[in-house]
Amino acid sequence: MTLFRLAGDLSHVLAILLLLYKIWTTKSAAGISGKTQLMFCMVYVTRYLDLFTSFISVYNSTMKVLFISASVATVYLIYFKFKATYDGNHDTFRMEFVIVPALILALIWNYAFTFFEISWAFSIFLEAVAILPQLFMVTKTGEAENITSHYLFALGSYRALYILNWIDRYYFEGHWDPIAVTAGIVQTVLYGDFFYLYFTRVIKGRKLQVLP
């Protein structure tokens, strides 16, 4: 495992825990897109179907269990426990606009036409765009709370670090996963605007506002 990947995974865990912490301590899901969280939950479940069939390492299995359970907990907090605080009317992105194309693409582009591989490819494609409802919501309301910004930054950093990991693995191991790399680049690019706003505003102690 490369250091970039370890840093990426830790950044991913940090993002997930930050979000849970924010919702739990403020007892509010305000400003958080339930649709993005629902899609991330679908991503983890469809990707980690191999949890019981293919053992990689204790680290790998532990992370998979952590991602699935934290994601289910997040969805539960948003849609059940703190449902009254969830900004459903600002969360207007249509999930089928990304789920259907991700499924069609997975049927066309996969490493084997098997249920597991199609499910894996679907999860990779869906992950690339699952953040769109959240970014759409930030644009629509024109701002994000600081902790939501930190969450998005950690989540964006995770995939950016994975790109460095893929360069490293290609260079030193000759390892190359075209599906993950393509989707990962798309995913990272989606955070471009956000990264800019994060560095120019949040780091300087201001709130992230989309409109001047």
């Binding site: 990707r47 293919s54 998979k64 084997a112 098997t114 894996w120 994975y162 996963d177 993950a180």
Partner: peptide, 10 residues
């Protein structure tokens, strides 16, 4: 191959 590949990343 037909079985796909082993996905060792998260």
């Amino acid at each position: 191959g037909e079985e796909g590949r082993q996905h060792d990343e998260l």
